[in-house]
Design a protein around this nucleic acid. Structure first.
Length: 586
RNA sequence: CGGGGCGUAGCUCAGUCUGGUUAGAGCGCCUGGUUUGGGACCAGGAGGUCGCAAGUUCGAAUCUUGUCGCCCCGACCA
């Protein structure tokens, strides 16, 4: 391909709206163009990479025994109502709008495809003899993201590989899950990504039922907890840690302190001259009140965490057996008898459930709210001043891990928190969707059973961005060979010299004939200009053909990721380039 | 959805506070010339309903109101 006949709109200037490296470079290298918030076109060069990623995914999915199909983007609203996800997803679910009763009002754009795939499974997977089966597609997804950001890392329209497996029993699901896990490792390795697999929020089945594949980068939105010795890695939504040692300081007396207008942990600490780690944060949650519910309201839930810790609401919801929300002022006042900001566990009034983080249970002589406006107490001791056992008391892990907590494996290795991009997710779904949509099969005992499902997603656009986040320098992108838009770039420095152009053209033709993706920069531009463009678009291998070195019979071979230049005669250069490409394709 | 910022040429921005010729610069683009190994130079040129709407005014990119869009922080994220 000749550069002059292709479209690669590179720019020198950094676009003002782009803040993360991958976004800046994708625009500067002419890979993408934004059309609206979270909506991007893939320009020819960018689309070549996206297609290569797609092809790697497809090959590895096929190798793992999955079968490709293609499902619609437009789904009937009713299907989503049947699984309860119209309410669950809220504004994230994009809906078409039309007059009342019009088909448009009954149509949504698919944010994912559990519903339609389960509908297919219900129709056709009616016997255990057809199981297990894994169906996948590479398809555009639509989500009404409240805030798209960081270029293609978080968008309203994106390309996803989504696979769904169907099984007759849990053992088969475990096998299918492991196959996908292994396939994902191969996919991300082949794409040249420095990925890690971490335990993720596991949903309905629990245990090891979910893993996320992450690429560590400051541009990421997720935070993962990784131990220094590598024996544990989990998303902070889920991560746990080793219990803290019991503080054995002798118990002192409880004392009330006047703390006018001191509400926040920091204010109170400054006032009492103590540290957040010596305080107990007392948070009041309540169960959401459902409209039309005839049931009596559930009592509030009081959660205790150390002053320097945060409640992990995923963990809390799981312990509480339902989604909780922070209580309103009236509930808090009724429970504490004080203004908001002065709650403490020792003097609560009325029925409530107490969920105590295990770190709090180890504390001695802590400070907390006095349940009296403008007062706090010191010398509070768990077990003495408030219960650690009892019917409505739970001591467990309800907090986010912090940097420096120790590995839950007991190895003693400290946890570090790092930002990451989620590029893939494997998930054991169980029967959530097959139950909701009544997708059953007949087992060999002649009885209908719900299909047991797994689902497995990969964000293709994110792979592209993550690859750039992981492989770039001041000058531009350093593509891994496997997903580079072109594998070799031939730069002709003196395009008006026929000798130069003839050699460059022959190199191009030979490599192309050998099946190499080769781009030929034949533009009539100055050398510096072309080198800058070459570095920017990040083709892994460059062959420079210039008048000067050609006079000595040489062309120059250079890797994008190295400063070394090899002077070779054209035929050798061609051979060396071909070998290098073949070896590094994987 | 809360907080902040920004909408002027394909891109990056000045001009707006303090209303007043024909709305500017750099990059990019076109023509000609000189250059030619790490984003050259000279000359000439094309390109803008100043996001949109209403209002104030003799006069609006500039003031007022409304509205739409985009970015950042936060909330949210099956």
């Amino acid at each position: 391909m000749k550069w002059s006949a292709f479209l690669i709109p590179t720019t020198k200037e950094v676009p003002k709206d782009a803040t993360v490296p991958s976004h800046q470079l994708m625009i500067r290298a002419g890979l993408i163009r934004q059309l609206a918030a979270g909506v991007y076109s893939y320009l020819p060069l960018g689309y070549r990479t996206l297609r290569k990623v797609e092809q790697i995914v497809r090959e590895e999915m096929n190798r793992a025994g999955a079968i490709e199909l293609h499902m619609p983007v437009m789904h009937p609203l009713e299907l989503w109502q049947q699984t309860g996800r119209v309410a669950a997803m809220g504004d994230v679910l994009l809906r078409l709008h039309g007059p009342e009763g019009d088909w448009r009002s009954q149509t949504v754009l698919g944010p994912t495809h559990e519903e339609p795939i389960t509908e297919i499974a219900r129709a056709y997977l009616n016997s255990y003899k057809l199981l297990p089966v894994n169906l996948y597609q590479i398809q555009v997804k639509f989500r009404g993201e409240a805030r798209p950001k960081s270029g293609v890392l978080r968008t309203r329209e994106f390309l996803m590989k989504d696979a769904y497996s169907f099984h007759r029993d849990k053992e088969s699901l475990d096998e299918g899950y492991q196959k996908m896990y292994d396939a994902y490792c191969r996919i991300f390795s082949r794409c040249g990504l420095p990925y890690i697999a971490v335990e993720a929020e596991s949903g309905p089945i629990g245990g090891d039922a979910s893993h996320e594949f992450m690429v560590l980068t400051e541009a990421g939105e997720d935070v993962v907890a990784i131990t220094e010795n590598g024996d544990y890695a989990a998303n902070t939504e889920r991560a746990g840690c080793a219990p803290l040692p019991q503080d054995n300081t002798p118990m002192g007396a409880v004392a009330e302190v006047h703390t006018p207008r001191q509400r926040t942990i920091d204010e109170v600490c400054a006032f009492l001259k103590t540290k957040p780690s010596q305080m107990i944060k007392t948070l009041v949650y309540s169960h959401p009140v459902l409209k039309d519910s005839k049931k009596p309201p559930m009592p509030p839930v009081v959660v205790l965490v150390r002053g320097d810790h945060e409640v992990n609401e995923n963990k809390l919801n799981r312990i509480a057996g339902g989604k909780l929300e922070l209580a309103n002022e009236a509930t808090i006042t009724a429970l504490t008898g004080a203004a908001v900001g002065f709650a403490g566990p020792h003097a609560l009034k009325g029925t409530h459930r107490l969920i105590i983080d295990q770190a709090v249970a180890t504390m001695r002589n802590a400070a907390t709210g006095a349940c009296k406006t403008d007062y706090h107490v010191t010398g509070i001791n768990p077990g003495r001043d408030f219960p650690l056992t009892g019917e409505h008391v739970t001591v467990t892990d309800v907090r986010n891990v912090t940097d420096g907590d120790l590995s839950p494996t007991g190895s003693g290795s400290p946890i570090r928190l790092k930002k990451a991009i989620e590029i893939g997710h494997v998930f054991k779904l169980g029967t959530k969707y097959s139950d909701a949509l009544k997708a059953t099969f007949l087992d060999n005992d002649g009885k209908p059973k719900s299909l047991i499902m797994g689902c497995y997603g990969i964000g293709l656009n994110r792979i592209m961005a993550a690859a750039i986040e992981s492989h770039h320098d001041e000058g531009g992108i350093l593509w891994p060979m496997s997903i580079a838009p072109f594998e070799v770039l031939i730069v002709a420095l003196d395009p008006r010299e026929t000798a130069v152009m003839d050699v460059a053209q022959k190199l191009h033709d030979d490599l192309e004939a050998a099946g190499v993706d080769v781009l030929f920069d034949d533009r009539d531009e100055r050398a510096g200009f072309k080198f800058k463009d070459a570095d920017l678009i990040g083709v892994p291998l460059r062959i420079t053909v210039g008048r000067k070195s050609l006079a000595d019979g040489f062309v120059e071979l250079k890797r994008r990721d190295s400063q070394d230049v090899q002077k070779l005669d054209p035929a050798e250069a061609s051979r060396a380039a071909f070998e290098f490409v073949s070896q590094s394709r994987k």
